[in-house]
């Protein structure tokens, strides 16, 4: 069984420019690394991870590259609660003279 069959939604990777082919005007850290390319599309044939493959993109272009992910997930999210931000709303309502009890008693009694 191949890792992915024809028609699977995948992500490919390739190097567009090797470090020595890059623009002469780059900061030192960027100069040392290649310019990399990632793109998603549908496999046009069965393939294994790490193999050179062809995909058809969402607009029907055929592009080749190394297969790096199968059914790639969106990895960004909402993040963790940020303690440095959480209390700002209550502080501001207090400044505006609202009814909010910043000691938290009201909130606790609601829970009980």
């Amino acid at each position: 069984m191949p890792d992915a069959v024809k028609g699977t939604w995948v992500q490919i990777h390739k190097v567009v420019l090797k470090p020595e082919e890059r623009s002469p005007r780059l900061p030192d850290d960027t100069k040392k690394v290649p310019l990399e390319f990632r793109l998603k599309g549908f496999l046009t044939h069965d393939a294994n991870l790490g193999e050179e493959v062809e995909i058809e993109t969402l607009i029907g272009r055929k592009v080749r590259g190394k297969l790096i992910k199968i059914n790639p997930e969106y990895e960004h999210g909402f993040g963790k609660p940020v303690p440095e931000l959480l209390s700002i709303g209550m502080e501001l309502r207090k400044l505006l003279g609202g009814e909010v009890d910043v000691s938290g008693h009201e909130l606790r009694s609601c829970d009980e």
């Binding site: 623009s23 960027t30 990399e36 390319f37 793109l39 993109t57 969402l58 969106y74 990895e75 993040g79």
Partner: peptide, 27 residues
């Protein structure tokens, strides 16, 4: 990936665009 840019890429794909994602550099 920068989370905000990942989100913008997702949105482009949601509208049916092909999104080419590159690493850092003016090239």
């Amino acid at each position: 990936g920068q989370p905000e840019i990942l989100e913008k890429g997702r949105k482009c794909e949601a509208f049916g665009a092909e999104v080419i994602q590159l690493s850092v550099g003016p090239e």
